[in-house]
Nucleic acid binder design. Structure first.
Lengths: 343, 343
DNA sequence: CTGAAAGCGCTAACAG
DNA sequence: CTGTTAGCGCTTTCAG
């Protein structure tokens, strides 16, 4: 079990190290018999290539770096989201022989830019997956791009298609949710906005207004409350909306944490869900299925998005450089017990 | 911003590369004036050492590898736990110039052992933090140890102190919870057991029995139901316990997910909490504070534990090799609205 | 306190 | 299809 090197394998197989390198890297210019001999030697010695040596010689590490907003800086509800992103990146890392480096960081701290530049120079990752809201921050995107490292941005909430982006159709699915609520007979559908730095979440507000219009309902600022994506903000906004007259019969929150906050507010006020009030959220976090009644929401394929992003980095698209391309993933409406006919 | 090397810095500072290496690595045998010159050159060139080269020359990567059970293989409730572990490891990585490699893997899949061996040979991490339940699996621990890589096990639920271990006092805090419930006047305190592979969780059952005894209550197998750490199992076990006669007045579940399941079962059966039933859990997941009423539970310092583990790996304890030592972290009782006086 | 030389284990041309 | 020869950018002896 002593650590064997490519030289040991070459000697045992009776070939040159270059040939060993070829079979390890799955280049095809190797005769079948030779390949078999080399593979036998590899198995016998329990050889695994030394990544540091590989990375040094090839001038880039077999590493994908996932950068996201540091959850420990605030609350912890985003844990599920982050785990899903990691899961997606890991899927391609596993199959392509890369490792995943995670780098949470606070997007508002001064010095993030330098921090990320230093990280890139040291670690020399093959590519970077940048999650929202960091993917919305101009200076950060510019700094990473300047290093020349392939970059894919996740859900940056851009108005137009751009290169190196994996987006969601937030505006469209939010409109769909509103149309669904309207089809249940709701006339006064309220909305709780998300954190302003989270542009993709901001698109949901536009979608809300689209949906109203498409359903022939008129918009009223009385039916909108401001939130910041947190459970507490949802609860506060919910209290506020539910004390207005006339009361909304449905509340659509820009994310699930806030929607659950609304449910709690309703419970406090003795308003039963879904009989007297329908509540809907967005994201389909784990909690959504565990509350009572289970929350109607929109599920987004975060793991698949991160997977696609990593794939763009690691394999590149045909005829394009790594990290190019634009993909839109669709959210799907999950109708559960928290919504129903208008009272 | 072209990537500069140690040679560039040496040339600019008018010293040899060895001297640059010395100041970068904070060795003290450098004259103050020389150090200043070198540091100026580093700043001017925006130099950051190439990790691959460093790792290759020093025969070990500046990497800590965190290995835990793959959550995507099952449900996702453990997300918060994993994020906390990552957070703790990252704290020491940041301050010590290491990076974090995460490696979720299914502890029951055949071939995990080989997978981990290959990972270690390729990545050559400075140390490994192994979370439960992998830290309970003999063959895995043995395989990692055999590679010679420093290892610290997290919460392996050992009966006795061992080296390279950061543990929790599950048995003691569980007894404490039972004593607390007894002090509220509860006589029939039920328990829902955890997943059998999770040894530390198993210790909670022993703690439950200790607590009964210490409170002068007699144990009855009628008051114990089997769970597997999942929300669904908690709900099922709760239904089962709540239909027994005489009904328990308090239910203590081996983790929070199951405790929340019990709350849902009670809601279904129209049993109000905490008036007719007290419910307590263990772990203090995010959800614990969000349910209504908020869940009484035990908070464990997961991030601090992971931090301690990484510190043992990276800095080593005085007079010992990296990864040695045994630490026990204490859980703290969080009394919230889900428990109260016995009916 | 500082420097010169010798690799670490691999990939990248370029030959054959 | 296979091998030879140079490095990649550091750390590590070992000398001064």
């Amino acid at each position: 079990m002593a650590n064997s090197t490519i030289t040991d394998v070459a000697r045992l197989a009776g070939v040159s190290i270059k040939t060993v390198s070829r079979v390890v890297n799955r280049e095809d210019a190797v005769r079948e018999a030779t390949r078999a001999r080399v593979e036998a030697a590899i198995a016998k010695l329990g050889y695994a290539p030394n990544q540091s040596a590989r990375d040094l010689a090839s001038r880039r590490a077999h590493l994908v770096c996932l950068i996201y907003d540091d959850p420990s800086a605030y609350e912890l509800p985003s844990a599920g989201y982050i785990i899903r992103l990691q899961e997606g990146v890991l899927r391609v890392c596993r199959s392509q022989g890369y490792e995943l480096l995670i780098h949470p960081c606070s997007y508002r701290r001064r010095g993030v830019t330098r921090e990320l530049e230093a990280l890139i120079r040291r670690a020399r990752p093959a590519g970077i997956v940048l999650a929202a809201p960091l993917s919305n921050t101009r200076s950060i995107v510019a700094a990473i791009t300047a290093t020349g490292t392939p970059l894919v941005r996740l859900a940056p909430g851009l108005k137009r298609a751009a290169d190196g982006v994996v987006a969601t159709n937030d505006r469209e699915f939010s409109a769909e949710m509103v149309r669904y609520l309207a089809s249940c007979g709701h006339q006064r559908i309220a909305f709780i906005t998300g954190h302003p730095d989270h542009k993709a979440v901001g698109m949901r507000y536009l979608g809300y207004r689209d949906g109203l219009q498409q359903s022939g309902l008129t918009f009223s600022s009385q039916l909108v409350a401001a939130g910041d994506n947190s459970f507490g903000a949802g609860e506060a906004a919910g209290m506020q909306l539910l004390e207005r007259e006339p009361r909304p019969t449905a509340i659509f929150a820009a994310n699930d944490d806030m929607a659950v906050g609304v449910m709690r507010a309703a419970l406090r006020l003795g308003i039963t869900i879904p009989d007297a009030l329908s509540v809907a959220g967005c994201d389909d976090i784990t909690l959504a299925e565990q509350v009572l009644p289970p929350l109607t929401t929109i599920r987004q394929p975060f793991a698949a998005m991160a997977e696609q992003a990593s794939l763009m980095l690691v394999k590149g698209m045909p005829d394009k450089q790594p990290g190019s391309g634009h993909f839109v993933f669709k959210g799907t409406l999950k109708i559960r017990g928290s919504t129903g006919p208008a009272p």
